[in-house]
Each structure stands twice: as C-alpha cells, then as structure tokens.
Design a protein around this nucleic acid. Structure first.
Lengths: 224, 224
DNA sequence: ATGCCTATACTCCATATTGGAGTAACCATA
DNA sequence: TATGGTTACTCCAATATGGAGTATAGGCAT
C-alpha cells in the first residue's frame, strides 16, 4: 500500500490513458503499449491496477457479460496530472538484457553448435518481433489501430523498433556467416586477425589520447 | 544459500573465467564483461561472488595491502563445467528497458520541451556509451585489452554494440528533426499524415492476410 | 445434455533484487 | 594533521518477480 509510483505504474497508467480497459485486456494488449520497452510480469499489472485505483488515479466501472463481471478502468484527472508531473522528472537510461551475449563470451569453452544455436535463436527472436511489428504497421495502414489518432507519436516508436530489430537481425546474420568460417572455437592468429580487422572497421571514433590506464567508463544506471 | 544459479551468477562466473579478480575489481570492470548486456546492482555482484565461492565454483586467495585484505577469486574446474553445462540450456530472449519511449507515448499531455529533452537525453546516453565503445575499440587496436587473446569473440560484441548504439543515436536524431517541425504536440491531420507516411516507408513486410481481429502477439519473456 | 476447452479475472507467496547506508583502512595533498 | 577521496566490502528493509493456483463463464462438438 506504498504510494510511491514505479516506472511500471506509469507504464500501466499510460496505457489506461489511451482508452479504458479491463485488467485482462491490459495484460493481453500491453505488448502494444509497453511490453517491449518496459517488461513487467503479468501479476505486476494486476497489482498496479489495484494500486492506481486505490490512489484514485484510475477509476473502475463494473460491466457484466451475463453473470461474469469485469471492471473497466479509466484514467482520472488526478491520473493525468500525475503523468504530466512524471514528464518533468529525469528519465532513466536505456538498458537491455541480452543473455545470448554472455554466452557468446564463454563460447570457446563450449561447442560450435551451441554458439551457432544461440545466434540463430537471437535471429529467430528478432524475426518474431519483426513479424509482430509488421502487423502493427499493417494496423496503422488499414486505419484500425486503437491509437490511430496518434499515429504521429506511435510512428516514432514503430520506427525505433523496426530499425532496432533490423540492426539485431543483421548482426545475427553477419555473426553466423563469420562463425561458419571457423573450424572450431579455439583462439587462433587467423581468427584474431580477422577480429581485429572487424573492430578497426567499426564506424566509431577512437579517443584522441591513447589510453594508458584503463579508464573509468561512464556511470549510468538507475531504476524506478 | 540456495544453490540455483541465476543469469547474474553466470555473468559473474564468466567474468572470473576471463582472469582472476577481487570483487571490487569485478564491480569496477564489469562494464567490459556484462554490464551493458546484463545489468545487475553492485551488491548483487558481491552476493554472487560469495555464493559461487560457497559452491566451490570459484576460489579465493587472500592478499594484503598493508592491513587491508582483499580476496582474489579464480574459477575452478567445477566452475568451468557449470559454465559449459549452462551453454546447453535454452537462452532467454533479448529484452530492454527504455523508459524514454513510455514518455514519448504520453508526450501529448506534456510540453514540447519535455519531449525534446527526453529525446536529447536518449541521444546523450547513446553518445556516452559510444564514447566508451570507442575506448574499448582503442584498447583492442593498441593490443592492451585484458581479453586481447579473444579478440575474435569480443569483436562480435563490440560490433553488436556499436551498431546498436548508432541505430539508437540515428533514431534520436531523426526524431528530434521531426519534432522540431511541430508547433505543438496536439494531434493534427498534418502530423498524422506524416506519421502514416513514415510508417508506410518502414522496411518491414506487412502480413499477407489483412488483419481482421487484432491478433495475439508472440509470447516471449522469461528471466533467470 | 454432457464434457471439454478456452477466456476472463484475478490472488498468493516464496524467492530474488534493489538501492542505500554503514564500516573501515589506506592514501594524497594542503 | 585534518580531510576528502578511493578501496573493499557487508547488511538490510523494502520491493519486485514469476509461477502456481483458484474460480466462473461461454462456446462448441458430440
């Protein structure tokens, strides 16, 4: 019953701001609103809905289908104000969970098949999400998306998503091609030479001063 | 004292596999090993080190600087075996936390300055990380990286990272340009027309069948 | 009419995770 | 010699997680 809102609270509140939903619908449709930018457990959604309602930021109205009740929640004026206030606070930096990369790091102690399998999984995941993004694109083109009146905003997100996924897919493709030229996963002069060349060609500036002592990286992190 | 390993455990174990470290060094240097692909709190690292040591997957040796003790941990054979076994298990899908996008979604209830500020922050974050990636690149080119003998593997990660960051930075740039053509954040025919056009041009296939009922997206998520 | 599957709408809880505070020695510099 | 920063952690209360469990309704095939 704490009244400190978390990012998950704002995510749910933002979805309710789009239009009224029942908790179940929110859970089903959150993929279009925040799932891919702010993953949260199903049970967390139900919990947040109750908290937001208790705080008066959303309000529920009971509906019936036959005898089965469901509560449809809408955002209140207070809820909108809370969202507005949130926009004035500092934003948390982007972060990701990419377990596959950890496995790439230790790949040399495993088999080539395992490495290839991992990368193929990454590619498959990206392709699944691209397929979904394609459906979202189609919904907008057909004019049937729930957020049709806000295409100008949603387009920014779809743009981000598709480009990100294409970047990931392309990486997986490149990496599969590279690993397939390897006979085994042992370090070798040959592989390391290619690796160094790959790094040299990456389109990023190296620092002006050469690095003597391994410098401190930029700190960033912070949740909630 | 549970002996179920989490992904964070494997991340730490994988770092120890690179070379021996003291917990403090691991915390400082984890940015080069897993921070950006598997974020974990500082205290989590210390906790994992203790657990892994208790389980015999790493072993510590005490050193002294004057009276200040520090324990340097190395991976054991058991530890290596555990990592190998892990490579045979299914990999969790990619996911991200991108609070800024949630704010983009509700931007119309706030000010243009807030939206622009959010996107600029995203750009700045990407640029910070790119600067760091540039340093890593430089370390490899100079041949002084700790993982120099595994450039062939590390190159895959650096490649991923730099391309991802460039994608994010480019999106921020595009989006800033777009929002700067807006006088306000109100929905309008004009803005929505541009938005729809942007979506139309995104390089992703729309599904063969047009969508009647809003279809279920692919389920994916899973931690640990 | 019966059975079965799926949709709806949650609750519960053991564990995991987080951020922050606390402790303490060491070290450079003014 | 004071003091502020770095090194090197420990501890903990509060919060979050995901998975399992509960229960009813509606639809459809036989």
């Amino acid at each position: 019953m704490e009244d400190q809102l978390t990012t998950t609270s704002y995510a749910v509140l933002a979805q309710v701001a789009v239009r009224p939903w029942s908790p179940y619908e929110m859970v089903q449709q959150r993929v279009r609103y925040f799932r891919y930018v702010w993953p949260a457990a199903e049970s967390a959604i139900y919990r947040e809905v109750k908290r937001l309602a208790a705080m008066g930021l959303i309000e529920g109205e009971k509906e019936y289908t036959g005898k089965r009740a469901r509560t449809v929640y809408s955002i209140t004026e207070d809820g909108k104000q809370v969202l507005r206030d949130w926009l004035g606070t500092p934003v948390a930096p982007f972060s990701m969970q990419f377990e596959a990369m950890l496995r790439v790091f230790v790949a040399p102690i495993g088999t080539k098949d395992e490495l290839v399998g991992t990368i193929k999984q990454v590619r498959a995941d990206a392709q699944d999400m691209l397929r979904f993004a394609g459906e979202v694109k189609q919904e907008f083109l057909e004019g049937i998306a729930v957020t049709q009146d806000q295409v100008y905003i949603r387009a920014l997100a779809v743009d981000f998503f598709i480009n990100l996924l294409i970047t990931v897919e392309a990486w997986a493709e490149r990496t599969l091609a590279e690993t397939e030229t390897w006979d085994d996963l042992m370090p070798s002069q040959e592989k390391n030479k290619r690796g160094l060349e790959k790094i040299r060609q990456l389109p990023v500036d190296t620092p002006d001063e050469s690095i003597k002592d391994i410098s401190k990286p930029p700190k960033r992190q912070m949740r909630t």
